[in-house]
Amino acid sequence: MATFFGEVVFSASRAIDDDDDEDSFANENSEVITLDLSPAFSKPTNDVGKVTDQLVVTLGPAANVFADCYILHQEKETVGTMNKRLDRDGQPIEGAILSRLREHTDVLLCKCVKDIEQHPQFSFVEQLFSFLGNSNTSVTILSSCSGSDYKTHRQDVSFPILRCLKTSSFTGEVAAPHLEPPNTISGLASSALSYCQIHGIPAVMYVIYTDSIFMDSGAITAFNPLLKLQPFRKVAKKTNNFQGIIKAAVDRPSNLDSLYT
């Protein structure tokens, strides 16, 4: 079954023993997502949601490095973390970091540092937006996909490719062409955009399609057209260590090219 934005939900197969199926389902749902606020922001007098006009969500290495280069190097404060646990009493694993720039307190950035599995995605999205609780918040989502997922009849495609999807309530400018059918988006990006569509939240998602299995500078700089539009036009400042951050990100997965690593 496909959701509004193309997230595919697979029906359970009955070609296995019922007990095994129930055990598998229980194991898949054992991962719990919790929003843990920093002490300063857990007080009722410090309601971040009421002052947040723009939420930026970055998913995947390319989007995260782009945020590091242009936003997160500035003076900021950690609002909280979205943590994964195997159960409610388990050791937390940091899944996402919520940060706010001291100079622009109306912009909140959610940097996803770990993949969120399919089943906890709804909980992740619901807790994030329940925390904001502001119908005036606009959302920008940055993500990336493999070029092999991009479907087109054209023969002269050159990667990386930047495309966008938006909710019906989003009326602002966009920095890229709309994603052409029959292309679809899945995962946490789809869950977040679907949530915004259902609840009437203005949101736009940008996705980079790249033909490399490793991080490359082209995938990171492919987000640069967004710098001309809000909220990036207001908050973005290029770090002095721009090349160093990109080089570190490009070099990081270099050991994956060995079959025996």
Rank of each mutant, 00 (worst) to 15 (best):
D89H: 10
G90W: 06
Q91V: 15
P92L: 00
I93Q: 12
I93A: 03
E94N: 08
E94H: 10
E94P: 03
A96Q: 00
L98W: 05
R100D: 00
R100V: 09
L101F: 11
L101K: 14
L101Q: 06
E103M: 07
H104T: 12
T105G: 10
D106V: 12
V107T: 15
V107M: 10
V107E: 04
L109A: 06
L109H: 15
L109M: 12
L109E: 02
C110K: 06
C110G: 06
C112K: 14
V113M: 04
V113P: 07
K114G: 02
K114Q: 02
D115P: 09
I116L: 00
I116F: 07
E117V: 07
P120A: 01
Q121V: 08
F122A: 00
S123Q: 04
S123A: 03
S123E: 02
F124A: 04
V125I: 07
Q127I: 07
L128I: 05
F129C: 01
F129S: 01
F129T: 10
L132Y: 08
N134T: 13
S135T: 14
S135Q: 11
N136F: 12
N136D: 11
N136C: 12
T137H: 12
T137F: 09
V139H: 08
T140I: 11
I141D: 03
L142Y: 15
S143C: 09
S143M: 08
S144G: 11
S144C: 05
S148T: 15
S148H: 10
D149L: 11
Y150F: 10
Y150R: 09
Y150W: 11
Y150G: 03
K151P: 05
K151Q: 10
K151I: 13
T152E: 01
T152M: 04
H153F: 05
H153I: 12
H153V: 15
R154F: 06
R154T: 11
R154H: 08
Q155M: 09
D156I: 13
V157S: 08
V157E: 05
V157W: 09
S158V: 15
F159R: 06
P160I: 13
I161E: 00
L162A: 00
L162I: 15
R163Y: 10
R163F: 06
C164A: 07
C164G: 06
L165D: 04
L165G: 06
L165C: 06
T167N: 01
T167E: 00
S168R: 12
S169E: 05
S169R: 13
S169M: 08
F170E: 02
F170M: 07
T171F: 15
G172S: 05
G172H: 14
E173G: 11
E173N: 13
E173Y: 12
V174S: 10
A175F: 02
P177R: 09
H178A: 05
L179E: 01
L179S: 03
L179A: 01
L179Q: 02
L179G: 04
L179H: 08
L179F: 07
E180F: 11
P181M: 06
P181I: 15
N183A: 01
N183R: 07
T184P: 03
T184K: 12
T184H: 11
I185S: 07
S186K: 14
S186M: 04
G187Y: 08
G187S: 02
L188N: 03
L188K: 07
A189P: 12
S190D: 01
S190K: 03
S191I: 13
S191V: 13
A192N: 02
A192Q: 04
